[in-house]
Amino acid sequence: MEGTEPTTRITTNGNQEADHMVLMSSKPLHRFVQREPGSLGIVIVMFGCAEVLMGFQLVGEKATTSNGLYVPFWQGALFLLCGNLSIYTERHPSKKMVTVCLAMYLVSFFGILVSGGYRIACILNYRYLGRWMDQWNFYRRDQLYGVEGLLLASSLCVSVLLIVLCVFARLALKSTRTQFIVQCIPAPAPAPAQSDKTPN
């Protein structure tokens, strides 16, 4: 069964819930949850929203921008998906969800490599725009430098977060077998038998 895999501990003194929490902390799948992927997911969602909003800003631009390959939109969608999956997996941990998260982290990381290369090519191309531009278009070129540079820097920040999450997810998937520990607590010793003799 590949759903949420509980760890149980059977005791005779009724402390099952406390023992359950102790064992959950040592299980690799729940160590992934303890590293709070949901918090990192919120940060990735914020970067994804910024990416999509900047993409709308670049739509009407005549110069070559990263919007030529619709990079802000598909990369922003990948960031939003990865962030939401991280948040959901922290609340509902399971082997399937961690596997899906790991796959999306890798896809997003390779997307960052593609978009980063294209954005660097666009930034290098902007230096040739100044030869045929008036003063107003110089300012426009500087804005393009700023927007593309900001999106490139945010992509690099997200790539670091994705690498960290990939490591956590891989460690969580390494060993997720269900643990059963049976602890037998002996019954208290019987009280010594009293004699039936009555005093005279």
Rank of each mutant, 00 (worst) to 15 (best):
Y139Q: 11
Y139C: 11
Y139F: 14
R140Y: 06
R140T: 07
R141Y: 00
R141G: 09
D142E: 09
D142R: 14
Q143R: 14
Q143Y: 09
Q143T: 10
Q143V: 11
Y145C: 11
G146M: 13
G146K: 14
G146D: 14
V147A: 05
V147D: 09
E148Y: 02
E148R: 03
E148T: 07
E148S: 12
E148W: 03
G149W: 10
G149P: 13
L151T: 07
L151W: 02
L151N: 01
L152Q: 07
A153Y: 11
A153H: 08
L156I: 13
L156S: 11
L156H: 07
C157D: 00
V158A: 09
V158W: 01
V158F: 02
S159G: 13
S159P: 09
S159Y: 04
S159Q: 10
V160Y: 03
L161Y: 01
L162V: 01
I163F: 11
I163K: 15
V164P: 02
V164F: 11
C166Q: 07
C166G: 13
F168L: 06
F168Y: 13
A169Q: 00
R170M: 03
R170W: 09
L171E: 13
L171H: 12
L171Q: 14
L171G: 03
L173R: 04
L173F: 02
L173D: 01
K174H: 14
S175D: 15
T176Y: 15
T178F: 01
T178C: 06
F180P: 02
F180S: 04
F180Q: 05
F180K: 06
Q183E: 08
Q183S: 06
Q183T: 08
C184Y: 09
I185S: 02
P186K: 01
A187H: 03
P188L: 02
P188D: 02
A189D: 07
P190S: 00
A191I: 05
A191W: 03
A191R: 08
Q194K: 15
Q194F: 05
Q194G: 01
S195D: 15
D196T: 08
D196A: 12
D196G: 11
D196V: 13
K197M: 11
K197E: 07
